[in-house]
Design a binder for these strands. Structure first.
Lengths: 340, 340
DNA sequence: TTGTATGCGTTATCAG
DNA sequence: CTGATAACGCATACAA
């Protein structure tokens, strides 16, 4: 018979009990350090545990406890965005720190294909996680339906229209966009355009709405360049489109810092100075803002806090508390630097 | 008695069996669509499943099957790097695609604190994953020890000195660094420096070694600026240091594209033109390379492939195959653009 | 303080 | 083809 290179069998509570000459119940008590166990028994058991290299089997524990002590973080984004959008990383880190504090394991699940969607759905149904934080769900997202069906404690970062009744945390994109646009107007620019990204998402649509609000009568639809994603390339393309349509443009609201960075590239290409010829503002206050030349005026968005609060919402639901149905809105603030 | 807002109890195989009027064994067969089950039984069971909303409990299945059909991806990096290093995202996506193809769930675990380390160690021990891909392990990493102790099928991206006998996949950093430095020398530069990042990692140390190899007699330690991490800020700082030490510098090998981007910023600050006054080359060929002005000459590193191959290695070990102990080295190539 | 027995939801073995 | 029944490893109520 061939010896499979497989691993040695893991020690169980049974082995420990045998080694220590006690019953499994007592071992279990020591492992979960419960009271009512004699000092000598405890000592013997601890020695036995070390000797056989025992480590509890969580699958078994989960089965009997009916929980996994883990929370999923679902990222549903196309490759490019996942790699470029600094907010996603921040959200992830924020959620991890909150979960970590409560001794929950964050497991992040990335969905990039149809196949992934199904697998993740199965995963969620499988009791691997006690709850879930969803980043950037779309409308009619199958994952959302799975979550509802299982009624798994969940919190969304951002809120697609079709899940108004699920807990979410976000920012007031519209008000923030309006505020920074007004500030840009205040600098005396006459022809202000917007590079509007991700209009199929609440963040994108709301930022455009805020822009429109601020401009009022002076709003000119021709000065809005819609692009699909929050990416550098889309920012550059959007700016080129704007430049082609309105050569006299002297102000730009970019839907995000990455977009602004791309736009800056296009502007430089075209020989325009910033903020001399055109003033530009972004959104996010991500690492990009400080990396641009000149430094970007933008809206600070607490991405880390979003992840954290979403995780905390899940945690509180896990404790049996009712979620805040209205959603949680975090504050933003304008950071004025040199680009406008 | 208070009604806890808890979720309704999930249906089990038992409920389905009762509903369909068959035994649990038969239901199990249908669920895992095994042969030897009559058409009528199958039909009845499928109806029952739909009716009671049955979904298999994976904890129970794992317990008896002794596997989880999931593979962990461990990212052990400080916040800043996690957010800035595009390679990490690529590796993650590459691993996910390989795993996804084999119908394994990738769960990524990020470690940012001591506490996280312990929790992840417990998680790994808990049977939540069948194997693990480790990105950027350090020397003496506690996680590495846990993996060895459990002898969990694993593959490392990059290879710290102290795990030469564990499977890994990487690139030949030294040869690649040497090659691009030689190319830079070939452009006629006389005073060439290096911004050397992450010297405590194999990638960082090897790139410096390759640089030294290429320079030979002409190597001048004063022209090496060591910085801790692959970040934009460190690139800028490193370049400033170099400029201060050797104003006549006319060539720079930046340890990564991000570093080069930061360096470019410092160069611009100092009023130097690129590639006119100084030629600069990077490493990675990440999105940064195309975002720099001028476009960066760099080394293309197949980050996505690294993740993919590492995942495949784990998968093959899961099939019982012996890992390639020597490690797998992927090819790199020089991409010559405008910065030198 | 400790041991025993039972159940968690599946899969798997074996008689029918 | 199908139905009992025994694991899987652990927690826990109950008995001792």
């Amino acid at each position: 018979m061939v010896t499979i290179p497989g691993r040695r069998k893991r020690a169980t509570i049974h082995d420990v009990a045998a080694e220590a000459g006690v019953s499994r119940g007592t071992v279990s008590r020591v492992v979960n350090n419960e009271p009512y166990v004699s000092a000598e028994a405890r000592l013997a058991i601890e020695a036995a545990i070390a000797k056989v290299g025992y480590v509890p089997n969580t699958a078994a524990r989960n089965l009997v406890m009916q929980r996994s002590q883990a929370v999923g973080l679902i990222v549903h984004e196309p490759h490019s965005l996942f790699l470029e959008d600094p907010n996603i990383g921040e959200i992830l880190l924020g959620a991890n720190s909150a979960l970590s504090l409560a001794d929950y394991q964050m497991v992040s699940l990335v969905i990039e294909s149809e196949r992934d969607t199904e697998r993740v759905a199965r995963y969620l149904s499988g009791g691997f996680v006690d709850g879930v934080v969803v980043v950037s769900a779309r409308e009619q997202d199958p994952i959302t339906r799975v979550i509802e069906r299982l009624d798994l404690p969940a919190a969304f970062v951002g809120h697609p229209q079709d899940l108004r009744d699920l807990p979410y945390v976000g920012i007031n994109n519209r008000a923030a966009a309006r505020a920074i646009t007004e500030r840009l107007i205040g600098t005396g620019r006459r022809r202000i355009g917007m590079i509007a990204a991700a209009l199929d998402r609440d963040s994108g649509a709301d930022r455009l709405a805020g822009f429109t609000d601020a401009l009022g009568d002076r709003f000119d639809p021709a000065l809005v360049a819609p692009v699909p994603l929050y990416t550098y390339a889309d920012g550059r393309d959007g700016m080129r489109a704007l430049l082609a349509r309105e050569p006299l443009i002297d102000g730009v609201f970019a839907a995000s810092d990455v977009i602004a960075a791309g736009a800056l590239n296009a502007l430089r290409e075209d020989g325009r100075s910033v903020p001399g010829d055109v003033g530009i503002v972004g959104f996010d206050d991500s690492a990009w803002a400080l990396r641009c030349q000149p430094l970007l005026s933008t809206v600070r968005q607490p991405a880390n806090g979003l992840g954290q609060r979403a995780a905390e919402s899940v945690l509180s639901q896990l404790r049996g508390e009712a979620p805040e149905l209205g959603g949680i809105l975090l504050d933003t603030q304008i950071v004025w630097r040199d680009s406008a």
